[in-house]
Amino acid sequence: SEYETMLTEIMSMGYERERVVAALRASYNNPHRAVEYLLTGIPG
């Protein structure tokens, strides 16, 4: 799925699956924002 592709691409940058899933959830599946959250911390 498109979601799995995003997940895999972000994980390939060296992040753990659960952190990527949390970041995508926080960003409403916006991959650019999710990466930003992984770099700066997930808000909330």
Rank of each mutant, 00 (worst) to 15 (best):
R19T: 12
S12L: 12
I10M: 07
I42V: 10
M6L: 10
A26D: 06
Y15N: 02
M6H: 06
Y28A: 15
N29I: 03
G44L: 13
R33E: 08
T8A: 15
V20K: 00
V21I: 14
M13W: 06
L24M: 08
A34N: 01
V35R: 07
Y3S: 04
T5Y: 12
R25V: 10
V35N: 02
E9Y: 14
H32E: 15
V20W: 03
A22I: 09
R19C: 10
R19H: 13
R25K: 15
A23K: 01
G14Y: 03
P43Y: 09
E2A: 13
E16Y: 04
Y28D: 15
P31R: 09
V35L: 15
P31N: 03
V20H: 01
V21M: 10
S12W: 05
T5G: 09
G41F: 12
R25S: 10
N30M: 05
T5K: 15
I42K: 08
L24V: 02
R25Q: 14
T8P: 02
E9L: 14
Y15C: 01
S27N: 07
S1E: 12
S1R: 11
A23P: 00
G14S: 02
Y37G: 02
Y37S: 05
A34H: 01
E4L: 11
P31Q: 09
E4C: 07
E16M: 05
M6W: 11
S12N: 14
P31A: 09
G44R: 08
M13Y: 07
A26Q: 08
P31W: 11
A23M: 03
L7S: 01
L38V: 02
R17D: 03
E4W: 11
A34S: 02
S27I: 03
E36T: 07
R33H: 08
V35Q: 06
Y37H: 05
T8L: 15
P43F: 10
N30P: 01
R25I: 12
R19E: 15
L38I: 05
R19L: 15
S1Y: 12
P31D: 02
Y28S: 14
R25P: 00
E18F: 07
G44E: 13
H32I: 15
S1L: 13
I42P: 09
L7R: 01
V35Y: 08
E18G: 08
A22Q: 11
A22E: 14
S27A: 15
Y28H: 15
M6Q: 04
G41P: 06
V20T: 03
N29G: 14
E2H: 12
T5F: 11
Y3T: 04
R17N: 04
M6F: 08
M6R: 04
M13L: 13
I10Q: 00
G44Y: 10
N30H: 06
Y28W: 10
A26K: 06
V20D: 01
A26T: 05
Y3A: 04
V35D: 00
P31H: 08
N29T: 03
Y3V: 05
E18S: 09
R19K: 13
E16I: 07
N29R: 04
A26F: 08
V20I: 05
E16S: 13
L38M: 04
